[in-house]
Design a protein around this nucleic acid. Sequence first.
DNA 1: TTGTATGCGTTATCAA
DNA 2: TTGATAACGCATACAA
Lengths: 341, 341
Amino acid sequence: MINLVKLKDIAEELKLSVSTVSRVVNNQDRVNPATRKKVQEALQRHHYLPDENARRLKTNTSNVLGIIVPDISNPFYARVIKGIEHGVMERRYSLLLCNTDEDIVQEENAINLLMRQKVAGIIVATSARQQLINALYGKTGCPVVFFDNVPQSSQPVYSVTINNAKATRDLVRYMCEKGHERIYMITGPQGESSADERLAGWRQALTGQGIIPEDTWYRFGDFREASGYRIMTEFLRQAKPPTAVCLANNFMAYGAIKAIEAAGLTVPDDLSIAAFDAADETGLMRLSITTVVQPAEEIGLVSADLCLHAAQQRSSTKCQKVILDHILLHNETVACPPESR
Amino acid sequence: MINLVKLKDIAEELKLSVSTVSRVVNNQDRVNPATRKKVQEALQRHHYLPDENARRLKTNTSNVLGIIVPDISNPFYARVIKGIEHGVMERRYSLLLCNTDEDIVQEENAINLLMRQKVAGIIVATSARQQLINALYGKTGCPVVFFDNVPQSSQPVYSVTINNAKATRDLVRYMCEKGHERIYMITGPQGESSADERLAGWRQALTGQGIIPEDTWYRFGDFREASGYRIMTEFLRQAKPPTAVCLANNFMAYGAIKAIEAAGLTVPDDLSIAAFDAADETGLMRLSITTVVQPAEEIGLVSADLCLHAAQQRSSTKCQKVILDHILLHNETVACPPESR
DNA sequence: TTGTATGCGTTATCAA
DNA sequence: TTGATAACGCATACAA
């Protein structure tokens, strides 16, 4: 690393003290306009950039936010990160990014890494189950904003989500309106709030319609395509298979559709499908999936706001759970059930 | 930010000096095995984590890499970043991520931000045109690894790419084999190496087949869907429209296909299409596009290796241009031209 | 309005 | 084998 110009260099050149130059850099008053101008000009000329490490060490505050996500190549997380970027950019914060591959050990490493860097705050889509979350994030010493998988306890934490239960209820009711009764559900891992809440919403909607779902009507997947395929295949083997299935994310929906077609059936003629986050980005999908769209960039933006706000006020008192609106796209993968035609 | 435990605290508790504790933390020798054990146990018990800022300030080296990309929500960049993550993880480096929205001002800000943080190196898909690249990255004071858009000068720089010209030649030759002659090209912005090289490869392949492309046969897009749509529409209005078109990326291909269909034509019956990075991730596309697949994660992995290696040896002498293999997927969007049937 | 002095947490040099 | 001390670059309380 090349030795860059520092306050001392500027001070010596102008025969001033380091403190005066520092004051100009930080736009403080109590500096003679003339000297200020002279200093600014010299700073410009030398392309002075303050050393953030030294500054941080001195002030014990940093302008870096830590981001922890399971999989940065998942478009949903990528868009959230983009939203965070936009949220912090004007305030000149940087983003320290950690990918965990949904591995809890990697997540713990990431937390340590961020703590060592003394980040001002952490925004995280944790892969930890409920019981673990507190143990992991309780002692970070900085504000933590959760999204996607959030602590469900009544404890005060910052979180940004959609109303997952309501979104699923909307989805299921829509299927009911189309005449479906045997509506099954493939959700995510048990203990992840988004998975749990979506399952709860599914159950609420069904019972609300006077339908009592049996235990064979739902399964926990892992948000990956293979689990969608596998579980859907099992559903189809049941004595009385479903006429419609809800899926907790896009990848599992892709797997499920392939399983249905592998069984010689057609979506939505033989079986209806709806899923979370399965909007067609390309406009070239064979099937445009009926889907709940989460406002990913907004989730990032709001998380960033929350995190910066919490970081800037010393007291970590007023925690907030923000709930954003989702969109329900009524596309072509939900039709009336076969028997009703 | 909560006050974490520091070397001094441990030292006081054990009635040792800070230096001894520091030596244990850094696994240096010249420390009594007994005391070492005692110290290690205390470090564990207090969950000691070194302050990377102080360390960096003192040693003038950092374990942070800066990443600059135009758009993190583009799956290609997201996958490259994932590769970088995997490449640096075991060496306990962190990633400082900057999104530029292809805006050169934001890119300059990002560079400054990274320099202030004293990153050990930078991995970048720059949005700068050739002439600008040196001005922007010449004075970073740390190794810079380019991918995607790389300096084409003969100057020694680190870069990781595929052979874009060859990949396009492969694509065009394949179209020629199918009987096409009027093969057009929509490339990226002039001055971006990937765009320029793909255009060059297209030209080489055609002339190699004895076909002399006219100036109306190619256009510079901006890698966005709208430009693919617009330019394709213009191509179709020409007196003698193309029978096949090459596109420099996925988004422009999506736009082009929509333009073709909007004109009442069919891919590939009326017009053949091939593109870069347009592999079907979902397995549910209407059309599986004939495409050049870049090894995105490998690009990230190799970039990380190069960058770390360069950062760890003081001398920035031996620069390298790494060229990785691409894959050509022969899918269904290239057929024989209509007149030959 | 400007300068001097101190310390942030760590590493490194030198002495004990 | 251990400890005292200085320094990294900067911000700031206090003195001038």
